[in-house]
Design a protein around this nucleic acid. Structure first.
Lengths: 329, 329
DNA sequence: TTAAATACTGCAACCGGTTGCAAATTATAA
DNA sequence: TTATAATTTGCAACCGGTTGCAGTATTTAA
């Protein structure tokens, strides 16, 4: 069923049908009713592809996610998707994988699909290939980069100041009487680098000693706890751990508990992300809330503003908040 | 940049350019090279919207997800999306929310976007509104329903026999010497009903007694453990628990541990989903692997077969597998 | 009652591709 | 060398909408 068929049944031109559908310009009330009746009768559903081609606006937004199986990203994607939908934009969520090749491909797909704009989620996209591909394929459409930053002229960077959050965590540990704070991580992402930066600044400001431990992805996947225990044996003065994410913190708690190290008395723990993991551990986990929902929402809102030619700052920063639970004494 | 501009630069007609791009019919080698050179030079990117309109094939698939924040669904969505992409189909993932209204709206969006087919994930979509809306908007395009079933003529139902899995779990508990098995759940979904069915059958086949406990969503969100402890006080003979999902099992372990009930000696526990939660508990969690990746993969493959006019069975069933860990004695 | 202004409506071009058909070119066979 | 077949290529219509412009109908003002 096309507007032409509707037009025929309603005995008007296709233009008029189009005007009725879009509530555009002046259509006589009688005509409008007549057309609307036919529209309703046939349960007309407009072909958005044709409209896109004609208006040169797809009303689709591409969302590039590093890994949709990772709730850290999907929490953000959920917020953006919901917000965009409320504003009449439909989302194409693409799982861009980890390889540069796959990222390039994903961006090209979005470009060919004529999306009106894009939201990129995850610091993993902060690289030359993405930068170049965007320049080639997306030079005129707005892009929001969540939790990362790219210098392209049409990319708007929206980041959570994770470094500040970690710094605050260090200060909080001091307030709770901890003195030897280990920062433990397992992913070498830009986000992690930022966290380490905040950690180092905080430690340095307090005149404390830095302790950094990096677990390999393999070790965490096999839940190998020797690395941590050995490290603690070598550095028995350590009395607090900041883990780069809640999953790692959860595994750390499991490891310490099994080795009869008391949390929070012997060692205090802070996770990052304030995820569901925080509730299921004993003791429950103090964690840095990264404000992911806010980030997603703000991202969607910024993109909509750009699409409506409102001005948006090229760089926006929001700040995490520490949610205290039982893992600190 | 359009094929017309390319055509002009290459001094051929747009038809020829189109033929080169699509590797279609006979194009002279010389001409092909000439066109390809211009294509490359200008880094031509084809407008898929125009192609969709013209070919009446969008090469897009709609994926309807009940909640993209829930890893149970995104694991499946990830598999389907990856598989579809490998076959040249791009996915529109829509988070369809919980309300019937939102589901209707989502289906209509997909229909208007002219997707070639759809994949529906989650038993929550197993309702009259969805059934009707699909009939109205999707009557001619194939739909794969994962973990649910709808009688529409173009809907292909692919389900995991969760009832069989739970039944097997009951049998396994018996083998491990457990006799009084509680089934605990907190969501009233069709999937849960199926699990309970399997539980009851298993229990009945063994001549055991059924113990069912339903926690409200509010209770689980607030991590209220009184309900379980009280239930166990009233039924002290209970020596095993099957939880409707791993999160609930994890919370159960936390609750029992805090109340000094030994797992697996006093009470054995089986979770469902074989998720990441299984590793982080002490003891680690025996869980029913729902074969979500297989489901997602099979779903994508079936849809592709349908789109290529190959025959696909209207109903396919796959079976879970129990992964044993430390939570059984 | 008539001229000018305003409200409606339709024509036709356009968005950027694809494709059947026919024309033009080249290759093959007689 | 010519008739015929096969290969290449372009024309023009089509996919299903939108929209500027012009023409017609209806008001409003004079």
């Amino acid at each position: 069923m096309t507007i032409y068929e509707i037009a025929e049944k309603a005995d008007v031109s296709a233009s008029t049908v189009s005007r009725v559908i879009n509530n555009k310009s002046s259509v006589n009330k009688k005509t409008r009713n007549k057309v609307q009746k036919v529209l309703d009768e046939y349960n007309f559903s407009l072909n958005e592809t044709a409209r896109s081609l004609s208006t040169n606006q797809s009303k689709m937004i591409g969302i590039l996610v590093a890994d949709i199986r990772n709730s850290h990203y999907t929490d953000i994607a959920y917020e953006t998707e919901t917000n965009l939908l409320e504003n009449g934009y439909c989302s194409i969520i693409i799982n861009a994988g980890n390889t540069a090749e796959r990222m390039r491909e994903s961006i090209e797909i979005l470009s060919k699909r004529q999306v009106d704009g894009a939201i990129i989620i995850g610091s993993i996209f902060q690289n030359k290939v993405v930068e170049k591909t965007l320049k080639k394929n997306f030079n005129d459409r707005p892009i929001i980069f969540l939790n990362g930053s790219l210098p392209n002229k049409n990319v708007y960077n929206l980041v959570v100041a994770e470094d500040e959050g970690v710094k605050e965590s260090v200060y909080l540990l001091k307030e709770h009487g901890y003195k030897h704070i280990l920062f433990m991580s397992w992913m070498e992402t830009a986000s992690n680098t930022l966290k380490i930066k905040g950690y180092k600044e905080g430690i340095s400001n307090l005149g404390y000693t830095t302790y950094l431990l990096n677990i390999t992805e393999k070790e965490i996947k096999t839940h190998n706890s020797d690395v941590l225990i050995n490290y603690l044996k070598l550095n028995p003065q350590i009395d607090a751990i900041i883990s780069s994410d809640d999953l790692l913190a959860t595994l750390t708690i499991k490891c310490l508990t099994e080795n009869n190290i008391n949390i929070p008395n012997e060692i205090g723990i802070i996770g990052i992300n304030n995820s569901e993991y925080c509730y299921i551990t004993t003791p429950s986990l103090t964690s840095l809330d990264n404000k992911q929902s806010e980030l997603g929402q703000l991202g969607a809102q910024s993109l909509i503003n750009l699409l409506n030619n409102k001005s948006v700052s090229k760089k926006i920063q929001i700040f995490p908040e520490i949610i205290e639970r039982e893992s600190l004494r």
